[in-house]
Structures are given as structure tokens and as C-alpha cells.
Amino acid sequence: MKRKIALVCAAAMALSLAACGNTASTTSESTASESTASESSATAEAAGEEAAASDFDNTQSITVITREEGSGTRGAFIELTGVEEKNDAGEKVDNTSAGAATQNSTNGVMTTVANDETAIGYISLGSLNDTVKAVTVGGVAASAETVKDGTYTLARPFNIVTNGDATDPVAVDFINYCMSTDGQALATEDGYIGSDDAAAFESTQPSGSITVGGSSSVSPLMEKLIEAYEGVNPNASIELLTTDSTIGVSGALDGTYTIGMASRELKDSEVEAGAKATVLAMDGIAVVVNPANPIEDLTIDQIKSIYTGETTTWDAIQ
């Protein structure tokens, strides 16, 4: 009996030890493998794609990364790729596979994709950096130009939402600023696609304070716009709350926010309730994979089959 207890104890111990030992030893290992990865990618670039392809085990299953329900990025992505489809009853159904790992931030998606060579995710084009690789969609690379001329189809509007027309003088002045040459230039600078034919801005210098809230995708841009606007009109103070597109619209409707932010088109129900959207800028959605992944191009259908869980390994992509 006693010996049994001891054995169980020892076994449990050994197990947890093995676990800890692994993590401790692999930190150095992973840094090592990182450096080899970067080396191999360098050689791969030199030797052409085939070398990289042979290095990448494409029989591995795909780690599908998605955003949480309610995220504007997810809403736009599933709509544009057809992952969201109408069922027989005419309801829209989000068919994202239940096996997709959920991250509640752009960074969560990027970090996961950067650390997992089998992963695929989608992020706002403005947030794209070189830790991940954006694939071309149907042969078109994601960029400000392709979004603007409409050839890159995975694009969505950044909307500012008001309950009917804005009445608050600060809100009106601020919206005018956002839509002016200055505001649009800020958007373009950040990698979003602003309008070219905007008018110059002249502030009426109203004083007061307003609250802007909503989509976390829009808020980095909004933060810059607010900073710049407060420089132009020191009388105004604007509070920025980061939540989500859905809350952004409902907040604008119930008065919690003077101006709401949404990173998707308004739903019919929201328009009926009196929400009015103004397109602040366009944003592309980049489909990103790990830099070690040799794949360069995916069609919309391929993306859809990955996200609905029909395609589960990289070699199954034709």
C-alpha cells in the first residue's frame, strides 16, 4: 500500500518534471530554431522557393486563427470570404470551424501566426508587419492601391457612426476634421486608404467634450485623429473608449458615445434604428501566414475551405 502511494507520487512527480524540463530546455532550443529558421529562410530566398518548400512539412495540420464573435474584422472577413452563408431558413450562419483558435486582438493573431509555422490568420492591413507574411488573394497583393482600385476584394470600411446627423458642435467639427485633407492624410499615413478629394479644414473652434467609442480596429487611427484635432482645437476634449463595432453602434444610438466607431458595414437593423455611418477610410484585411510557410497565394475559395474546416492540412490546398 505504502509502496503504491510512493510509486504514484513518484510517477506524478516525474511527469510534471518532464513537463518542466521540457519547457526549460526548449527555451534555448526555440531560440536556436528561430535562428536556424531565419538562416534557412535566407538560403531559401537565394535558392528559390523549392528549397523552402522542401523545408516546410506541408502534411501538418493547419492552425486556424480567428477573431472573437462580435469583432468587426471577423464580421467583415466571414462576409467577404463567404464563410458566412445563408442557410435554408434564410438566416446568416457563421460557419467558422469550431476548431479555430480564437484570439481577441490583432496582436494575439499576429503573435500566434509568427510563432506557429502552420498557422493562418487575418488582420487589418494597417497593422501588418514583417513578423508574419501576407499572402496574395486570387493573385492580388494586399496594398493601399489594390484596395483603392477594388482589385483586392478583402476590404471593409471604417465607419464613424452617429445617431442621425451629428448635432453636438464639437462632434460636427471633429467629423469635419476627420473627413478633411488633414484627417484623411493621417489615415493614409497609417496604411489605411483615405479619400483623395477631401476638402481643407477650418475649425469653428467649438468648446465642449464628447465621447468616441467602439471598434478596437478603428481606435488606433481614431487616437491619432483625436490627438491631431485637439492640437487644432484646444477648446475641445474628446474621450476615447475602445470596445467593439457592435457596442460602438449601440453606444452611438443610446447616447453613451457621441460618435461610435465600427469596422464593418452597418446591419440593416442598426440603420433602421437610426444609425448613420460615414466612411472614415477603407481598410484591407490581410490574410497572414508564418514566414516559413512557402505558400504565396490563396483564392477566396481556398480561404473559405480552410476557415470552414474542410481543408485541414497545407498539402490539401491545390
Binding site: N107, G108, L241, T242
Partner: peptide, 29 residues
Amino acid sequence: STVAAIPTSVFSSTRTLAVHMYMLSNEGL
């Protein structure tokens, strides 16, 4: 909530250091 400014009254929304860190690690910029 998460407003990153020094509050003007007790009814202002604020962001403490731990929340700030969570927001930063989420934004990833």
C-alpha cells in the same frame, strides 16, 4: 474601462497599470 488619461473626476474612466499592460499586449503595436 480603459481610458489612458489622468481622470478629471471620480466619474472619469481610467486605466490602471495592469490594464494598460493587458491593452498593450493585446494591441501588439
